[in-house]
Structure formats: C-alpha cells, structure tokens
Design a protein around this nucleic acid. Structure first.
Lengths: 196, 196
DNA sequence: TTGTGACGCGAGTATTTGCTCGCATACAAT
DNA sequence: ATTGTATGCGAGCAAATACTCGCGTCACAA
C-alpha cells in the first residue's frame, strides 16, 4: 500500500475500491479487470486508486486475499472445535462447511478458481491446505489403529480430494449428484480409503 | 479459420504459427500471449497470422485443442484395451498413463490448468471427463456386486479425484508423496471407496 | 512463358491500458 | 482566520495491443 489512509474519508475510499474491484472481477472477469473500470465502478477517479495501491495487481491481490481469508476462516472454524476426533462426522461437517462457503458466491469462485493466473491466490490457498494437512497428518500419525495409510500421503490425498470435489460440485452442479449425495460420497471416499 | 491453406508453403506456416503459439504461451504465460509475440516467435509478420486465424483467441484455441486432444488420446488408449475389467490394475495403469502425459510438458500444463480463462479449454476437458465417466458408470451399473456406491455419483467422484490428484501431484511435486506412492494411494482411494 | 490467384509482408491505425501530475478542495491544528 | 497537510480529481501520456490494407512475390496451370 502506497499511503496509509489517515482520515475516515480515505478509509472508506479504500473500502469502496476493494468492493468495486470485487464487483468488476465478478462481472467482467479477469481480462476485464482494469484500473479504469474499477475506478468507474467505485465512482472515483483513476488517480485516486494510486493514492493507496501501488498498481493494479495490488488491488486484485487485496480482493482475492480477503475472499480467501474469509472463506478459510469459515472452514477452519468448522474444524477447530472438533480436532480431537477425525471421524466420519467431522469429515461430513467440514465438507458441508466448505460447500456452504463456496456456494456463497459462485461467480467469484468461478473467476478465482478458473481464471486467476496469480501465483498469489494459489499461495494463499496452498497455505490453508498445508495447515489442514498438517493437522490431519498429526492425527493420522497418532492413531495408526484407525487406518492403514501412510499419514503424510493420506493427508495430502484427502485434503485435495475433498477440496476439489467441493469446488467442482459447486461450479458444475452435476445433475447426477445432489448436495447430500456429495457429502455422502465424500465421507465414503475418505473412510473407505483410510481403512483399505 | 479465415482461409484454407492450399499450398504446402502455407500449410507449414499454419504449423509454425501453432508451434510458436504454444511456445509463447509457455514462456510468457496467458497475459503475455499477444499476436505480435506469436508472430515474432514464428518469424513471420503479424499480418500473416490473420490470413488463417480470425483473431487471437482462435490461435489460442488451436494450441489448447491440440494439447488436450493429444493428451486425451494417450489416456483413452490406455483404457480402451481393458474396458472389460475395472479393477485395481486398470485404475493404476490409467493413473500412470495420466501422470505420464501430464509430466510430458509441465510448463504447458501449468498455464493451461492454472491460467487459462477460456471456457473453451474447460469444455474440451469436460467432454473427456464425461466420456470416461459414462464408461465407468456403465461398468459400475453392470457389476453391482463389486461395489456399494451409486454408479453415476461414484463415476463422477472417481474421475474427478483421480484427475485432480494427478494434476496437482505433477504441478506441486509434494515431497511427502513419491510417484509410486501417488499411484498406490490412488488405487487405495478408489477401491476403498467403492466397497465402503 | 505467361497470367492469375495464392501468399506473405510490415508499416500503420484505432483503441485500450496502466499510471502520473498539477491543481483544487476538505480537514485539522493553532 | 490561517496555515499546513491529507485527500481527491481528471485530463492526458507513453506503451502495448489487436488487427488491417495496399503492395510486392511466389507457385502453378495453360
């Protein structure tokens, strides 16, 4: 950020910029995300953007960061209460929470998941994945009696599988799989895998 | 295509354009994929591009179409011989073939999988997914004695899971999972899932 | 050999882009 | 009130972009 907003007025402007950025990103896609469009959508002048953001990418980063952060928070909070028991219930609830978060703004999810070339957005996601993976690995390693897979590899497989199924289900809305069915199959996938 | 190349000379030029397009896409990414760059890389003039391609997107489409088509062919040929028995061996061999194909050009895979905003490329991939899914669904429906999942949903889950694990393994090269391990876990995931 | 159309060129155009800079205004402190 | 600073404006620049067009060159059929 190029300058710190000191007055309330300018703090609101930063918010307006980020909100407009999100809006433009959803409505015009990654290719249509231009500084002039964002400025227009925010009802401000192009020059004002650059008071607080060094360049176009910074605006995009902020938009994506906020989206990923708020989504991550929802999911991790669904996990945090119940780390003690990695059972079918937890898997189902986490998958449920994940799907719910992704459903909240499908249009934005589509752009972020399918268009953004930014290494930045992947970095944020990867960090979340790693965090979940480490917790899972630790649990699997502590309870070898409950499964028959190598902990590290199994955690990697499960996290990616659950995440990807949820994302693709929300984006593609396959007719053959209802929402409940998705959760059922996710649970079956994980539990069947762990004991095989 | 705007004009059909009639002479050998012009047919070679089309090939040069597509090859240069692939090269530019890999080296400069989606954002750097400009008509001028492609023309330069092909050693031709910008005007010559537009003799055979109506616009920039058409060049990109051709590059991606060829990549997806040639990859799809490799995978489907690994399946076609053995459709009769959807067992652990087949799963492992298909996953193996898939990983091999994806490994062949990681740089291009990265751009196609993580940058391209084209609905076009997803459409091609989705078609392949659907094809594999239908074969799997038919098999699962014909052999209800071998598993306990709803065929259509199970096929959807398996195809996406296998595909995504392979792609992410090739792109991320996780230290915790060797190539053999990936295949082992994939087989375990599928077989454990089907009987649970 | 010659004529005709396919071919290729590359300077050029119109547009869009990210971004700047000089200036006017709003605010806070004295 | 006055002064200093934070804020915002918007015309406009330099660069890049997708794409065109008139002209020369080439291959091939007659």
């Amino acid at each position: 950020m190029r300058k710190q907003p000191r007055q309330e007025r300018s703090r609101q402007m930063v918010e307006r910029i980020v909100a407009a950025g999100r809006e433009v990103l959803v409505e015009r896609g990654y290719d249509g995300f231009s500084t002039n469009h964002v400025a227009t959508a925010a009802g401000i002048s192009p020059g004002s953007l650059y008071q607080y953001f060094p360049n176009k990418a910074a605006i995009l980063d902020e938009v994506v960061d906020r989206y990923v952060a708020e989504s991550a928070e929802q999911v991790t909070s669904a996990m945090s209460d119940r780390i003690t028991a990695l059972g079918p219930d937890l898997v189902r609830d986490v998958a449920d929470a994940l799907v719910a978060v992704l459903e909240a703004d499908r249009a934005l999810l589509r752009v972020v998941a399918e268009e953004l070339p930014l290494a930045r957005s992947r970095a944020r996601l990867t960090a979340l994945e790693r965090q979940v993976r480490e917790v899972s690995t630790a649990y699997l390693a502590a309870r070898p009696d409950l499964h028959r897979r190598p902990p590290a590899a199994a955690a990697w497989v499960m996290v990616l599988a659950i995440e990807n199924l949820a994302v693709r289900w929300v984006l593609d809305q396959p007719a053959a799989v209802s929402r409940d069915q998705l959760l059922d199959e996710t649970v079956a996938l994980v539990s069947g895998y762990l004991v095989s």
